[in-house]
Design a protein around this nucleic acid. Sequence first.
DNA 1: AGCCAAACGGAGAAGTTCTCCGTATCGTAC
DNA 2: GTACGATACGGAGAACTTCTCCGTTTGGCT
Lengths: 190, 190
Amino acid sequence: MRMGRAPRSDARRNRDRVLAAAREAFAEEGPGASLNEIARRAGVGPGTLYRHFPARRDLHAAVLAERVERLCALADELAASRPAGEALDAWLRAFLDHARTDHGLGGAMMAEPGDGEPDLGFDCHAAIRGAAERVLAPARDEGAARADLAADDVVQLVAGIALSTVRAGPERAERLLDLVADALRARPGG
Amino acid sequence: MRMGRAPRSDARRNRDRVLAAAREAFAEEGPGASLNEIARRAGVGPGTLYRHFPARRDLHAAVLAERVERLCALADELAASRPAGEALDAWLRAFLDHARTDHGLGGAMMAEPGDGEPDLGFDCHAAIRGAAERVLAPARDEGAARADLAADDVVQLVAGIALSTVRAGPERAERLLDLVADALRARPGG
DNA sequence: AGCCAAACGGAGAAGTTCTCCGTATCGTAC
DNA sequence: GTACGATACGGAGAACTTCTCCGTTTGGCT
C-alpha cells in the first residue's frame, strides 16, 4: 500500500466539489445521473471528473463511503447495546433504508460487479458484509438466527428487497423485510 | 377495445423480425441492449423499431409475453397436480428462473414503473400476479403458507432475489430462494 | 524567481435514444 | 391490371450520453 505523495490542493478541492455535486445529482436523479451534468455542476471539466473517478462505480462508492461507515458503526453499537436478535433486526432495517436512499443507489452498489474494488481503498461490499457478520454472529450463537445463515445471505436478500421496491413505496419495502426477517430467525424444527 | 384494421403484411413481418432480433440481443447483452443494434440486426431502420415498440419497456414486454404465458400455464398445472405447498414452491422456482434469464430481463420488467401497461394489451405484471395468486391461495387455505401473504409479496421477494443475483451464480439465487420459501410457510406460533 | 510534475478543461470521437418526413409499398376498388 | 390512398418504411439528424486526448495552466518545491 504505497501512498505516493500528497495530492495537490486544487486536486483535492476539485475532488470535493465533484463529490458534492454527485451527492446532489444522485439524490435527485438516482444512480444513473449524468456524469457530464455532475461535472458541470461542480464547475469542472469532464476530464477532471473522470481523472478522479474513472468509472461511475467509483463515484458511487465515494458518495456512499461515509454512509457505509455510519452503517458499520451502527452495527457495533447495536451489537453492544441490545439483545442479539433485536440488534440484527434493527440493523437490517437501517441497511434497507440505506439501500433504498437516492433511488436505490446503495442497493445498486451491492448488485454491481465488484471484481477489483475502487482504487481509493474503500470496499463497500466487504465493509457491509463485515458489519452484517458482526450483528449476525451473536444472533446465530444465541439461537436467535438460523445456524446456517451467512452474512452474504442477509445482505443480498435485503439488497434485493431494495432493488425490487425502488419504484414502490417504503411501506412495501418494510412489509417485505418483515417477511424475510422472519425467515432468518431460527426455526423450532430446524 | 377497438381493433382498427388488420396490420399490413410487411408491418407484421418487420415486427416479427424485430422481436427475433431483440430476443437474441437481450439474451446476449441483457435488458439494456442497444435498440439501434436490434434494428440493425433485424434489417429495419430505427424508425420502424420505434413505431412498433415506442418504449424499451414495450419490447421487453413483447419478448417476455410468451414466456410469461408459459409461466401462467405452469401455475395452473402445478396447482392442479400437486399438494398446495409443493406447487407454490415449484412455481416460485420457475418464476425465479424466469426472472433471471437474459441477464435479469424478467426481474427488470417486474421492477419497471408499470403505470399504464403497453398498448398491445399484455400486462406482464398482472398476469404474473394472477398466476402467483393461483398457486398461493390454495397454499394459504391449506395452511401451507402464511395466512397474511399476498401475491405481490411473493412476486416482489423473488424478483428482488433475481435482481440482487444477476451478477452472481444461480446457486446463490437458489440459496436465497430456499430462505424466503421458508419464510412463506405458515409458522407454528403465527 | 524558476522549474516541472501534477492537474486542469474542453474539444471531439463514438455511441445512444428517439423524431421527422420524403419515399416506397400494400391492398383494394375499379 | 392499374390507379389510388392509407399504411409503413428507413435513414438523416438532433440531442444526449460516456470517455479520451492533449495543449495549457498552476501549485509547490528548490
